[in-house]
Amino acid sequence: MSGDPTPKGTARAGRSPGVSLGRIAGIPVILAWSWFAITAVIVILFGPRVEDTFPGIGSGAYAVALGYALLLAASVLIHELAHALSARAFGWPTARIVLNLWGGHTQFEHFSGSPGRSVVVALAGPAANFILALLGWVILGALEPRTVWFLLTEILVWANLLVAIFNVLPGLPLDGGRMVESAVWKATGSQDRGTVAAGWAGRLLVVVLLGVVVGIPLLQGRQPDLTLIILAVVMGAFLWMGASASIDNARMRLRLPDISANRLKQAAIGLPAGTPVAQARRIVRDTPASAIVLTGASGQPEAVVDTVALESVPDSAADATPVSATARALPAGAYVPEWAEGQELVQFLARLEGNEYAVIDSRGSVTGLLHQRTVIQAITGKSAPGSRP
C-alpha cells in the first residue's frame, strides 16, 4: 500500500518498530515485529499441506512453508519499493518502508502532489506485482510439475496476482483508493475531500467483503465457511480502521483553514506585572469575560492572572500587593501573533511549552489568551484537555 506523509520521529522513543534490514536504494527497510507472527501462522498452516502434497518430505515441509513466507515478503518489498522509487521520481522523500502483519506500507516525509502523480505512485505497487506474477508464470513453463520449486513458483504467481488485484480495489487504505481520491480531487480541487470520499469507499468495500463471504453461501443454501468469515472480519477490521483514519485526518486538514489565533482566542488585557491587585480587580469586574496577561519590563507576556487567587487577597493588602503574586507563569516565548492560522499555527504551538499562550497584535500588545484545548477542539471537533496540539 502507498503511504501518507509521515514526519520523522513519530515512533515512540526507545521503542523499536522492528528489525532493520538496512537500506535499499538509500531507503530504510524495517521488518515489523508483527511480520514474525504472520510468518509463524503461514508456516503452521501451510506446512501440513506441503507434507500432504509431498509424502515423505517430513520436517522439510515447514522449511518449504517458510520459503513461501519469505517469497511473499520479497513480493511485498518489491511492491513497496515500486511505490518509493516512483515517488522519488517526483521528488517525494521516502522516510522508510515497513513490512508488517498486513503486508507493508511506505511512509513519505512529505510530498507535493497532484491527482496524476498520486495515481502513478499508488499503482506502481500493484503493477510490480503483476510483473512478478507474469515472470513467475514464464518460469513455471521451464519447471517440472509436482516439484517443490514448481509449487513455490505457482504460489508466488497466485500470491502476486491476489496482492495486485486486492490492492487496486477502489477504497482507502488500499492503493486503488488513491484513484478514487484523485478523481474527486480533480473534480473538486481538494485532495482532502478526495481522501474523505476514498475513505468512505474503503468502508463500503468492507461491507461488500462481508456480504460476499456470508451472503453468497446463504443464497446458495450453504453454511458460510467459518475460516473465511474469521479472515474477512480480521481483514475488514484492518480496512475499516485504515479508512476511518484517512477520513479523520482529512477532516482535520479541512478544518485547518478556519483556525486562527485571532478567531479562537479569549479576550485578554495586558497589564504590567507590578500593577496592584486592587486595580486588577476593578478591570476583572468591568470586563469579566477577559483574561489578564501580565507583561514584564521588556513588554513580553510572562504570566496569566488566576482570578480565584486574585479575589483571595485581603482587601487591606490589595493596594500594596502586586498582581504578579496571584498569577501563574507562562513558559518562555509562549505567545503567538493574532494573524497565525491553519497549519502554521498548529506547528507553531507544537514547538511551545505549556497549554496556554498570549496572543499579541502587530505592535506587540496583548489582545487575547489562546488555550490549547480550544485549538484541539477546533481541529478535531473533540475536547482533549492536556493533549499536545
Rank of each mutant, 00 (worst) to 15 (best):
P322V: 02
L210N: 09
S260V: 09
D286G: 06
S387M: 15
L352Y: 00
P389S: 08
A309K: 10
S75H: 01
I139L: 06
V233Y: 09
T380E: 13
H371Y: 09
A87L: 06
F54G: 06
Q279V: 10
V234A: 13
T147E: 04
A164R: 04
A358D: 05
I247A: 09
G58E: 12
G136M: 05
L101W: 07
Y62C: 01
G199N: 10
A197L: 02
S86Y: 02
W33L: 02
R96N: 03
I42G: 02
A291H: 05
V214Q: 03
Y335E: 12
R285I: 01
A65F: 01
S324Q: 11
P170I: 11
S244F: 00
W102K: 10
T195Q: 01
A63Y: 03
R15H: 04
R49H: 09
W200S: 08
L162S: 10
P126H: 10
T147A: 00
F111L: 14
V212F: 02
P331Y: 11
Q343M: 15
D306V: 01
V184M: 12
L71K: 01
M179P: 11
P314F: 04
V234W: 07
P217M: 00
L210M: 15
R203C: 02
A13F: 07
E51L: 12
D248M: 12
P126I: 09
G274N: 14
A127S: 14
I38Y: 01
R193S: 04
P314Q: 11
T53S: 12
V119Y: 00
V121W: 02
R373K: 15
V208M: 07
A159E: 01
A384S: 12
A61P: 12
L45I: 05
G215V: 10
I24F: 05
V148Q: 11
I97W: 00
I30E: 08
P28Q: 02
R253E: 15
L370N: 01
P170M: 02
V293M: 01
R373G: 00
M1E: 05
I78R: 05
T287D: 09
A201Y: 06
A11Q: 00
N262T: 08
G381M: 15
P126V: 08
P337C: 09
V148F: 13
A334N: 08
W137E: 13
I360C: 03
A95Q: 15
I230H: 04
V313A: 11
G136C: 02
A378H: 14
D306N: 08
R263T: 14
A164H: 06
Q220R: 15
D192G: 04
Q343H: 15
D319N: 13
A74D: 13
G91H: 03
L71G: 06
F111R: 14
S362P: 09
I259T: 03
V323R: 06
G176E: 02
T147G: 03
R96L: 00
A127N: 07
A327W: 06
A268Y: 03
G22E: 07
Q266G: 05
L135V: 15
A334W: 02
A261D: 12
L264R: 08
R253Y: 10
G242R: 07
L169F: 11
L254A: 01
I42S: 00
A69T: 06
